[in-house]
């Protein structure tokens, strides 16, 4: 990647971050939603830790990574809406007729989404701390949870961008998102210990990237991390994220076939 591409990535990222900061309503909603999850699920399921075999001491400890990961999915899967808006407004076409590198255009989306996911995750972790959650894995474990949620967000963000560019219909993105979010979350260990999940669900969860992020994050955050789990799930997330970004960059070509 040339220096010019790096510069361009930075300028395009800056543009997107400024746009987010200038839309306070959007900002507040993205930040408030995780708080609601944390509060609702925390109160609703408080007693599940008492089930034999759950394994965690406090449900909040268990819930924080769940909400971090769920929020990473739910905020990034709307990325395609922004792309769609830029297509409809003509902004994408304007950029495509300048010498800006296509890689920089797509990377800016990834970096911006990564930054947003990181900020959101940090806030959830801090809120959890305020509520009395305990993070025995320390700062290192939390950073790995953050990394896992950013990678997971990248997968869904890039996928959503690709759908936006290929299908170019808001309804499709809305449909796909509503269809996916809850099943993906509940087919993972986000809210329920894997040992208490029906075995068929547990098998599906093994193939669910949302669960990979949870397994890697929770393990890294525990007092005694299983580094094999962290590396295998983390590596799988990284590979999938790279593939998703590559795919979404490819969709530029098919987009240009159709303009």
């Amino acid at each position: 990647m040339s220096t010019e591409t790096l510069y361009q990535t930075w300028y395009m990222t800056q543009r997107q971050l400024m746009a987010i900061l200038r839309q306070p309503v959007f900002l507040v909603i993205t930040l408030v939603q995780p708080v609601i999850w944390l509060f609702l699920f925390g109160s609703l399921f408080r007693k599940v830790v008492e089930l034999p075999g759950f394994g965690a001491g406090s449900y909040l400890d268990y819930l924080v990574p769940g909400v971090v990961v769920m929020s990473a999915v739910s905020s990034n899967m709307w990325a395609g809406m922004g792309t769609l808006e830029e297509i409809e407004r003509g902004t994408l076409n304007r950029f495509l007729t300048t010498p800006v590198s296509r890689t920089a255009l797509m990377n800016a989306n990834v970096v911006q989404q990564g930054c947003s996911t990181a900020v959101q995750s940090v806030l959830i972790v801090l809120l959890g701390k305020l509520g009395g959650a305990d993070y025995p894995g320390g700062i290192g474990g939390l950073l790995l949870l953050l990394l896992a949620s950013v990678l997971l967000g990248t997968i869904f963000g890039a996928g959503s961008n690709a759908v936006g560019m290929l299908v170019r219909q808001r309804e499709s993105i809305i449909g796909i998102n509503s269809f996916l979010l809850l099943p993906l979350t509940f087919l993972s260990s986000a809210f329920m210990a894997p040992g208490l999940m029906p075995s068929w669900m547990r098998h599906i969860a093994d193939f669910n990237p949302v669960n990979w992020a949870l397994v890697a994050g929770r393990s890294a955050m525990s007092a005694d991390p299983d580094w094999g789990d962290v590396l295998s799930r983390g590596g799988a997330l990284l590979a999938l994220a790279v593939a998703a970004v590559w795919l979404s960059t490819r969709t530029f070509h098919s987009y240009q076939q159709s303009v």
């Binding site: 510069y7 300028y11 543009r15 400024m18 746009a19 407004r89 300048t98 010498p99």
Partner: peptide, 30 residues
Amino acid sequence: RRAIGVVAQKSGADPVATGRENLLLQGRLY
């Protein structure tokens, strides 16, 4: 791309950036 300027039918300016920021970004891309 380096030799042309394009004013498309659709505006294409970023609505949540200022006029000056739009121009600066455009220049930087070149």
